[in-house]
Computed example of a mutant assay.
Amino acid sequence: MTNPWAGEVVVHLDGAPHVCKLTLGSLAELEDGLEEGSLVDLVQRFECGKFRARDVLALVLAGLRGGGWSGNAEDLRTVEISGGPAEAARAAAQMLARAFSQPESRI
């Protein structure tokens, strides 16, 4: 079970649930790995619906790492995310929203 008040989102990899959370450390890793722009640029791409598959993959990976998962990008490329790309994008957007909102406004 996830705690949205703590910014958590669940993602199912090969059918197994994993808690994702964008921590400061995982956000720093994410920012280092962005091919262009900053975290603000990434948030804007999601807000405008102009995100790319690599943005979704990077966010899901950062969230998984923040939740304690020890895998890497190559591991993530070889698993099935339940719900496919649409669910991965939804989870990524939800992680961003929860990471940058006040606790009382999270759902």
Rank of each mutant, 00 (worst) to 15 (best):
G68C: 13
E35S: 14
A62S: 13
T78P: 00
I107M: 05
E80L: 11
L39T: 04
E80F: 10
G66F: 13
S38M: 07
E80A: 11
V40W: 06
V9P: 04
V56P: 02
W5Q: 09
L61W: 09
M95E: 04
D41Y: 02
V56Q: 02
E47H: 00
L59W: 00
K50F: 01
E8P: 09
V19R: 15
A28S: 12
G67T: 06
L39R: 01
T78H: 14
S38Y: 05
L13D: 05
A99H: 08
E8S: 14
R77K: 03
F100Q: 04
L96F: 13
V56I: 14
A6C: 06
G63Q: 08
G66K: 02
G49L: 03
T23F: 08
T2W: 10
S70Y: 00
L96W: 09
R65F: 04
S26Q: 00
P4L: 02
A88F: 04
T23H: 03
W5A: 15
V10I: 11
Q102L: 05
P4G: 08
A6W: 12
V56M: 03
A97G: 10
V19W: 05
L30E: 12
P103W: 06
I81T: 06
F51E: 15
E87G: 07
G84E: 01
A86E: 10
E31P: 10
I81F: 04
H12C: 03
